[in-house]
Design a protein around this nucleic acid. Sequence first.
DNA 1: ATGAAAGCGCTAACAT
DNA 2: ATGTTAGCGCTTTCAT
Lengths: 324, 324
Amino acid sequence: MAALAGVSTGTVSKALNGRGSLHPDTRRRVQQAAEQLGFVANAAARSLHTGRTYTVGMITTDTIGRFSIPLLIGAEDALGAGRMSVFLCDARDDVIREQYYLRTLLSRNVDGIIVTGRRTQARAPIGAGLPVPVVYAFISSTDPDDCSVVPDEADGARRAVQHLLAAGRRRIAHITGPEHHHSATVRARAATETLAAEGLSLAAPVLYGEWSEAWGRQAADMLLSTATGVDAVFCGSDQIARGVAEALRDAGRDIPRDVALVGFDNWDVMVDASRPPLTSIDMDLEGIGRSAAELLLAAINGDPVHGPQMRPCRLIPRASTAMG
Amino acid sequence: MAALAGVSTGTVSKALNGRGSLHPDTRRRVQQAAEQLGFVANAAARSLHTGRTYTVGMITTDTIGRFSIPLLIGAEDALGAGRMSVFLCDARDDVIREQYYLRTLLSRNVDGIIVTGRRTQARAPIGAGLPVPVVYAFISSTDPDDCSVVPDEADGARRAVQHLLAAGRRRIAHITGPEHHHSATVRARAATETLAAEGLSLAAPVLYGEWSEAWGRQAADMLLSTATGVDAVFCGSDQIARGVAEALRDAGRDIPRDVALVGFDNWDVMVDASRPPLTSIDMDLEGIGRSAAELLLAAINGDPVHGPQMRPCRLIPRASTAMG
DNA sequence: ATGAAAGCGCTAACAT
DNA sequence: ATGTTAGCGCTTTCAT
């Protein structure tokens, strides 16, 4: 390589990295030679010297799923722009695997680590005194000093309820996931409080169950037989909402005329296929992933941000709450 | 590190890698020291010397989606056992991005590359004369010499039809995706041929459309109004099947008594939530990913396998075809 | 403006 | 059984 351009290896390095002061002709000549040989620098050798690998690790504590993917895409997006690559590790909710991967990543000298999962609930820090910065995405760390990027689920619930109120609904019910699930309780509380601020309360006690369509159907049936005059249901997930939509449809109720419906997640597969299409809350997972990656880059460059960063949700209106 | 154990760096290397002949005591002492210091070998330096990085790259030509994830998990699974890591690259169906990532992976000296996408249709090889082995997973390469691991979709369609025939159905219809889509035509042809082998033919011409529930509903309505006596529908995807299930339900047809239903993909979200739960064809994507990774490892170790490897599908029976 | 040479952290061949 | 040493491919300082 150096031979072809007729210069020394040091000069090649300078030419290719745009450092030092070189004659423009030399630089051009070297670049040409590199092109011709299809030369690609050995990243290992470079990192050995610079100490940086331009690589970040991403540890998914739960099997790579519906939530992890948008996060991953967002992160990859932000990092790709900085010519960095992502090592993917699926720890499958297993502490042993997680620690194993952590060691692997450290031995590979990643510049930083992003930790994600499919639940927003805070988790124990992945490690203490790590030699590289760590950012938590979607989930947060129980250590308030750790940098976490999380969706503001209360904000999402608030938007859902306010949207229904703006549509003139007053008897609003809430069907959601398991009571022990952080997201379920946070959203339920925010919904209740938003109504309370208007002097209202839920048309029925919160219906806790599973994150499934089957539960949505079942809960809707319960609602139809017990609560009267319910004119809107805010659901803790799109799957639940879709189940509710089906049950209402089976019972001859018109959506949104008789009952308006709002879901949560804005999961395309659910919201588009539902009849009618579902208004839903979007947590902007991709944005969270991107944001986490950007904060990680900042930390790598010596500007760490501490503590949880809340990101607002968006309401995506569709036919299930169409007014007029 | 060497100092703490009171030995030379060479000895440390031997002790930690279990090579050379060392006194057991020395080995133990070194290992203890490593533990104490939390020492993790620098992978860059190691790979600089050995030429191997214990890393493979995975390029997803289509945005990481429902198909890529199980493939990814499968691959990660097989590679993790060999203490290898996966670099994830999302090329987003963009040739420029793909080539950029290819260069990135090569500069990082990955030991091999897995290429995946969300369509099974053969694609142009990602590069010629690459210095590392490449295996295609789910998609295949147009170069018959390249190693590809693909689902035998015709086998899947055959199983679906045979299952329906075994259930005593004789007037079988087929609703599927776009006619220009490889999977749609392969499956449709196999379904037709399987029936032909029994001296039968489809109860109606193949209904090509979209891979959506909406199309499933629409096509089912068409079928109800034109074809008579249809007692089973084999669908090109679970989404289509679910749409069909809803339309049949709305029309008062009982599944499976009046019409039996088989989907394709065995996508949990669809098959479980459908009423009734859907019998479906599983392409075992995770197995494909695992298999691709294993073949890649073999190639890395000097035992390359050439040409496309077909993997059979499985039929997962559920209530939509329950007999008796 | 360019070349020479040291050294990043590790492994492996060789010497002791 | 252990230590010594020469690189792996690159960057970077210091001479020239």
